[in-house]
Design a protein around this nucleic acid. Structure first.
Lengths: 112, 112
DNA sequence: ACCTGATATATAGCATTGCTACTTATGAAC
DNA sequence: GTTCATAAGTAGCAATGCTATATATCAGGT
């Protein structure tokens, strides 16, 4: 995948990955890789800073734990994060319809 | 629309806007605004530098003309631009399927 | 003992990219 | 003569994801 394509949509993807339940960064990477047949294989240098950003924004909360001798930081959605995810999902539908329309040269269906 | 959402997809949208025939920057803005019911209203500070980038990349060629006393720079797709557009359309389909899958928490359909 | 690979997190610095704000200029309308 | 639509441009900014690198633990093989 081209690098810049994900820009502006990573947060939504990460929030969605945490929707089923709390996960730590490494598990998020694995989960995304699995669900996309290996096509979305995000580097750690992308994931960890992004999760920190989301935490600082109050959309997720993290807590340390140790499993099998290795420390983990497990993140879960906050109420604000759940709301943000709902909004971002709507944004995505709107946005993707718009780009699809633009690429196909037909007028864009108005939202809702 | 959130500002960062378009990142990485503007080029494809612009190339597509030039597919029907040559257009100048201002007309591209108008055209996109019309086709999206006003939702994609790109500022000139976005369009003009982007068209220059595409020209420098050899995907479009521009030529000056004067219409009604006002100078225009009219752009048309090159052969490379047409090829690039085909590729970018495929990229978009792949990418949007992936993000949609990620946001809906279901596994991603493999491409083709 | 040693090495490799998977697990797990982190950061500095970079490159790209679209936007804001501003400038310049013409023609039409009032 | 002022305002608005048309038309193009630039400087500088902010955001964001990536590369490269570092640290550390544990399992498995030799």
């Amino acid at each position: 995948m081209r690098a810049e394509e994900l820009k502006g949509h990573l947060d939504a993807v990460l929030l969605a990955a945490l929707e089923d339940g709390p996960r730590h960064g490494y598990a998020v990477i694995e989960s995304l890789r699995q669900n996309t047949g290996g096509r979305l294989d995000l580097p750690t240098g992308t994931i960890y800073p992004a999760l920190r950003r989301l935490e600082q924004a109050g959309l997720i909360t993290g807590s340390w734990s140790v499993v099998g001798g290795r420390r983990r930081r497990e993140y879960r959605l906050t109420a604000a994060g759940t709301r943000a995810l709902t909004g971002k999902r709507a944004d995505w539908l709107d946005f993707s319809a718009m780009v699809s329309a633009a690429l196909e040269g037909r007028p864009c269906p108005s939202p809702v």
